[in-house]
Write a protein that binds this DNA or RNA. Structure first.
Lengths: 221, 221, 221, 221
DNA sequence: GATGAATGAGGGTTCATTCAT
DNA sequence: TATGAATGAACCCTCATTCAT
């Protein structure tokens, strides 16, 4: 489960100091750009995002930004790639043998934590999905396959009487929909609940509630 | 429950025939523009949508379009207004006295039907929400209040032992999240389930499954 | 032989006066743009030409120019198309039966006149050729075929003993090279000969000299 | 007659070994840059050529290239200078006393060989001429004078009855035009003649044909 | 020397909106 | 009303050149 923003992991191989310093700076800049891009893409979308806005947010000139990126679309693709890379860690099932309660609780918790910590990324992903995933589709090789596997595991659990006979795929949808909601609509959630965002205690409460709701809905024992 | 696209309801007050004809044509054009705008905003977003694209889709020239609308943003606001107007019909609780099973089932069914029939509108709404609702916020006067009322009703039912003691607001969120998912991610849903969209029998199946899941999750009796 | 710049031929079908006036203005503007483009492309090349420069020379704003053209490349293609259209009239052989002296003299005169009257167009063509004709190639359908036919006619004349046994294709090249020179290098020609350009009497002299030289070189009787 | 690409002639004055090695490397690099520049300028023109493309072709970084050249225009000027230096060797008349047949045949052969071996340089020159020679003009000090001398020689021959009374300057133009054609339009020549470029036997044939044509055209005895 | 980084000016093109007819 | 035309502000991106290391 790697939720660190790209570029924050600074364990590069040791090198000549000069090179290392330069590479380090380069990586930092890339990270800054990445973060800026996430913010702008999240609020304005691909079409609405201007490289000027990204450059400003990153503290660069527009020309400087374009020195570091290939194109706006490439930067967007890179952001998406970072997201689906993260998804893998988040969405991977742990050992099926632990049974649905443990495995699904873990999954839900990871997903909720991701929602709390990376709401912008989550929104970019949802927005891309809603557009029909024109950019993302060619990048998602195994997602279908992985989802089918997850559904099979759930079916196994059902067959073993460990949970109610729900439609496994739909259950996965619902799990996704509910957990994702806390990222995509974080502002509204906070507003309606009159609770400040990012309250640690509250997050635990939400995870609890969501977990209980989802497991109960599927009759997980 | 009004799911008809705005502009289709043509029960204008009777008037002088000439004026009525003119007004009628005007209303029809507005409806055409509205529909075109929904399509374009849904797939390209506010920033990505071009008035040219909307005009093309409406069969008008760009200048003609701008004659009928105040501005692109105003048109967008109008579309959003149409959506929240629809929401009211969809989301309104029927008489609390019927109890949670009946009331919530009805609500879920209406919401699912809306998802099936107006996925584009749903997506525009979600996209706007995800941006932090910069345009929508000033337009949503009573939504907070209405949601609070709904939560109160649910709390009542809980107090009466008609359902498990869930957090009412969270339950509403989850209900929203799950039903909305079938609109916002219709393409993906169809893809993953290998089912053609818009199959009537399948829609009934989905409504059933979703209803059961949500009610069970809240322990509705 | 049509050497008029496009847009000058104003024999459009009669129409409603308003439309005709508008169409007329449109055609005039297109002609102005075309002329400006010819000048700029001739002196700066495709890559070096800026739409700003073309717009300035045409007395338009850049945005206005782009309202009338599809793109810089398309405008360039249009210019090239105009040139090869003209070529056809210039280069077409009259009736072979008149014999080489008459037919070739006519051709040379036409080509020289074109060089005098459209040196810029000629240069654009040569420049495009020198680049390997990346843009022009797909537009030249029948040039090869037409040239082969011309070569065959010349071979016929040779077989009939009407001219020396020169390589027909090479003769065509030389004819082209020499006549083209007076367009492509008009400035230098004037400079070296210390003669003002565009002197009518001098043009007749040049045509005479060139004709005699070329015919003698091929031993035309 | 020096047709070697500039920079290839490495007979620099002997010097201290270190300096000599350094100077040698410097000269080699200059030659590499020169060759790369010729290729890029020939196909893209001055405006269309990018220093990046030249650097790539020369195997240097853009910054490195700019360390070795003063500016893009200066490099272009340098290329032009190399070309006109070559022209001198190619175009110089041998001893007038040998008579027009010998002298002109030699000149034509040299010019044709240059066309075959340096088509790119030839094209750059022609392109510059067609633009009106804005860069070249200030560099061509003696060309006018030299051409006048050549014309005088031809006039002499005419006066001696060694060739027909053609306009000497025009004859030089035609000589230039025809021989140049085989460089500037090498691609089209090969295409139209369905002959592979750079065939040694064919080159001899072309030189023969061109020589005969030009001499006959001027009635050289 | 060589290289990554930076920059200012411009490149072509699009667009929402307005205007005149 | 409806349409062609016009406009000014952006937009994404490139480039020759310079700078710091």
């Amino acid at each position: 489960m790697t939720t660190a923003p790209p570029g924050d992991a600074l364990d590069e191989p040791l090198d000549a100091p000069a090179t290392r310093g330069r590479a380090r700076k380069y990586a930092q800049l890339q990270a800054v750009i990445h973060r800026a891009a996430v913010e702008v893409f999240a609020s304005d979308g691909l079409a609405g995002a201007s490289t000027q806005a990204i450059a400003d947010k990153a503290g660069l000139s527009k020309a400087q930004l374009h020195y570091y990126i290939e194109s706006k679309e490439a930067l967007y693709r890179q952001v998406l790639q970072g997201i689906i890379d993260d998804w893998i860690g988040v969405f991977g099932f742990s050992d099926e043998a632990f049974g649905p309660r443990k495995v699904l609780s873990d999954l839900i918790r990871r997903k909720m934590v991701f929602s709390f910590e990376h709401p912008l990324r989550s929104r970019i992903f949802t927005a891309e999905m809603m557009r029909g995933a024109p950019v993302l589709r060619p990048m998602m090789d195994h997602s279908q396959q992985r989802t089918d596997q997850a559904a099979a595991v759930i079916q196994n659990w059902i067959d073993q009487g460990l949970m109610d006979p729900v439609d496994p795929m739909l259950f996965l949808f619902h799990l996704w929909a509910v957990t994702q909601f806390y990222a995509d609509h974080a502002t509204q959630v906070a507003l309606f609940r009159k609770v400040a965002e990012s309250d640690e205690r509250d997050r635990r409460y939400l995870i609890e509630q969501v977990t209980e709701f989802l497991l109960k809905g599927a009759g997980v024992r």
